[in-house]
Amino acid sequence: MSHVQSVERTLKILEILADSPEGLSVTALSKTMELAKSTVHRLLSTLVSKGYVQQNEQNGHYQLGIQCLVIASSLLNNLDIRTVAKESLNSLAVSSGEVVHLCIEDKNEVVYIDKVESDQTLRMYSQIGRRAFMHCTGVGKALLSGFTDKKLNHLIDEKGLRKFTDYTITEKDALRKELTEIRERGYAIDEQEHELGIRCIAAPVFDHEGNVVAAISIAGPADRVTKDRVNGELAKEILAQSQMISRKLGYLK
């Protein structure tokens, strides 16, 4: 497959700036990309003229521009699952008092496509548009419960089973056993496997053909989202809402 170098470099700039909310100078960008400052400046000038990048007048640093948000919003608005799931997400947030997520799988990764914040302060990794590994998150394991053995093996070969905390599942057989349990009970649990102190319960969402197309979750501090609460009231709530979303997508089981 042939690639257009200038396009690749331009996209790389956008990806780097996306991970640098405070912005970067031309010097920092050129160093990161291992390109001449003149080349990076030329690419930036085009991006600025089209609104995809903006320059901070105070420090001269470059940041993502409004046009990126316009495109991202258009994409998100066209993901029907967000519209279908919105009522259920809000309902879960109110009933649980915790943070609620809606996620999909893309290229063997979790992508957060919607989030309802809790009234209570909580610092978490998740935010709309962010990606995460699948084996160590509640939503990721809920999505993995719909994978075939072949697809699961491919994911493990490609992504590995990286350890984030002492609770992270890092063995293939242990992950397969976990997925079997998830299919049986209908929901997944992130037992502080991605972030210490954060416990999560998640459930898969099915389309009209019975495919797992998304996952929803409730997450919060482990001392508030206790094991008893997860396996009791939260399990009932998230299963009810995941089933409701699935029915709206045409799932009849």
Rank of each mutant, 00 (worst) to 15 (best):
D106K: 15
R9L: 02
L161R: 01
S49F: 02
Q120Y: 15
K86Q: 11
L76N: 12
V7P: 14
K227R: 12
V230W: 02
S88G: 09
G197A: 04
S118F: 05
G138A: 02
E98T: 04
L29Y: 03
L17E: 00
Y112L: 08
T168I: 10
I71E: 04
D223Y: 13
R229T: 05
S2L: 07
R162F: 09
T137M: 08
A132D: 11
A188K: 01
A28G: 14
M134S: 04
A18H: 12
M134K: 02
G146F: 07
L122R: 12
A214N: 03
R185E: 01
E191T: 08
K227G: 05
Y112C: 02
K31A: 10
I238C: 00
Y251H: 05
N90Y: 06
Q63A: 02
L143S: 02
V116C: 10
I216T: 04
V26D: 13
K50V: 11
A222K: 10
N153H: 05
Y52P: 05
I169E: 12
Q241P: 09
T180L: 10
N90V: 15
A174D: 12
P204T: 02
S96W: 04
L43N: 11
K115N: 11
K159C: 07
L249A: 06
D19C: 04
S96T: 11
K159P: 01
E105Y: 05
H41I: 04
E209D: 14
T32A: 14
L92P: 05
I182H: 11
N231L: 10
I66Y: 15
I104Y: 03
E191C: 15
R42H: 09
G65P: 00
S6E: 14
K177G: 08
A219G: 07
E171H: 11
V48R: 14
Q55K: 12
E117F: 14
L64P: 07
K150Y: 10
A203R: 00
C103H: 05
S74G: 14
A18M: 15
D166P: 08
I156A: 01
A203E: 00
K107H: 09
D119H: 13
V70A: 09
A174S: 15
A142R: 09
A18V: 12
L92I: 08
L64T: 02
A203K: 05
I128W: 14
L102H: 04
Y125G: 01
A174K: 06
A202F: 01
A188I: 05
I156Y: 01
S242C: 03
L79C: 13
I245W: 03
L102V: 00
I81L: 09
V84I: 09
E87F: 06
C200L: 08
Q58G: 07
K107P: 07
L11C: 02
D157C: 13
D173A: 07
T180E: 14
L24S: 04
P221E: 14
E117W: 13
Y251D: 04
T170H: 03
R123K: 10
H101E: 12
S30E: 06
N108W: 08
V225Y: 01
L35Y: 10
D190M: 04
A18G: 13
Y52G: 03
